[in-house]
Design a protein around this nucleic acid. Structure first.
Lengths: 241, 241
DNA sequence: CTAATAGTGTCTATTAGACAGTATGTT
DNA sequence: AACATACTGTCTAATAGACACTATTAG
């Protein structure tokens, strides 16, 4: 195959600075649970899975919702870009964050060639102070047209979350410090999009949590014990690679 | 937090073309199984897990082994870069290939800032025609100093392979069309680095394979039936995102 | 007392681990 | 016959699914 050798030669001689640059950006899919008040003293408040989005004020995609993001600067690693962007949007310093996937379709940004390295971050939405961003519930996002390829990125992020929920402790990064097992189960259910049996659920997560002496109050039914995640220490934030 | 607003302003005004460009490259971790002849008519040939490496002829890292790679060109997606690079090195067109992780440490390439989007590819090493690359066995690689951060990339690739082997059909992309269950089991064992029980192994993979009427010959023991993977059609190559 | 949720006990089904025992081609 | 591997049968252990039953609070 002659072409291979020619190709090889071409590549060996290729100097990236001869070409129009390809920009590298980070876009972050920040997941968070929000809890709304019950509409009846007996019932439980609903929880929903949300994503942090920013309404664009400029073209392209003016007025569309988009993921928080920013360019990778010459003197920072990609993880550092992710941290910086997240701090700017959420005001939080130490949030769980991992690289998701790198999206590189040629026309994903109409202005120029931008390759986006997407990250997933998980926070307790109630604890998070957001600047000019808003929490958008998953079901709303599915019916909304977002800027760039951000819908596709979010779908990929949800797949990853769904995949990792069963063999990692990833969800706990979205939980408050103390939570009930029912709360936790509801989140598993919304992420997995299926019902789980309470007895089996309790069994499988039992070793990941520790009970506290506290209970919920003021509901017209049996109070629920609060639990704490066992692995809370030192597991936060990103690794560098 | 005043810094956030300043940061935001900075980013909004940041034009990537004002800065020295960040090059984006693809490096591919190509896994393949090689089978060596037995040293005794009774025994089975050993199989080993190999990675396709290229000995560098230029500085930096002259004479070190490195992963096959190349820059992402302005008019191709990252997946297309991966395919092109793989075709150039292996001569194969349709090999299984998926994105692994993007490595962006600042000094991973001493010449300039290069972000590398790493891919995993799986081939049947016996079928693969390689140009000026060589198959290096995993155990050798672990004791060898490779160019750039390629050792770290390979370790990450191995982790991914190990993770996916149990819930996907990924290994079959390294198998020849017809194979024995023992061969398959040995590969699972080298990837997982643990022994498996034959009876249990057969049970768990039974639904993924179909028996043929063919058997191995000329070994000083009972012949082994050859099987074929059920999902061989249409599952190859990369998806575009 | 009632509605609504919290939590337990237990039976069954499925799957994984262990290991003995049988099968077979080459020299 | 003997070796080395191929393959099966079956017992046991661990885990998941199903579901009935008990517990507890505010109003």
């Amino acid at each position: 195959m002659k072409r291979d050798i020619a190709e090889q030669k071409f590549l060996d001689e290729y100097d990236p600075s001869d070409y129009p640059p390809i920009a590298v950006a980070v876009d972050a899919v920040v997941f968070g649970i929000s809890r709304s008040a019950p509409d009846n003293y007996r019932k439980l408040g609903k929880q929903s899975l949300n994503i942090l989005l920013i309404r664009r004020s400029e073209y392209p995609f003016k007025n569309k919702l988009s993921l928080p993001g920013g360019f990778v600067l010459p003197d920072e690693t990609i993880d550092e870009t992710a941290k910086r962007v997240l701090k700017a949007k959420t005001g939080l310093n130490e949030i769980y964050c991992e690289q998701l996937y790198t999206f590189g379709n040629i026309n994903r940004d109409p202005r120029m060639r931008v390759i986006s390295c997407a990250y997933i971050a998980l926070v307790d939405a109630e604890k998070t102070r957001i600047n000019n961003a808003e929490w958008a519930p998953m079901d709303m996002i599915k019916n909304e047209e977002l800027a760039f390829d951000h819908s596709a990125i979010i779908m990929e992020a949800l797949k990853r979350l769904r995949g990792k929920i069963n063999y990692t402790d990833i969800v706990f990064h979205m939980m408050p410090e103390k939570f009930t097992i029912s709360q936790l189960q509801e989140i598993y259910q919304t992420i997995l999009e299926k019902e789980l049996l309470p007895a089996a659920f309790r069994r499988t997560i039992a070793h990941k949590i520790t009970q506290t002496d506290e209970f919920t109050h003021n509901a017209g039914h049996r109070p629920s014990r609060l639990y704490r995640w066992n692995g809370a220490d030192g597991e936060i934030t990103v690794e560098n690679r």
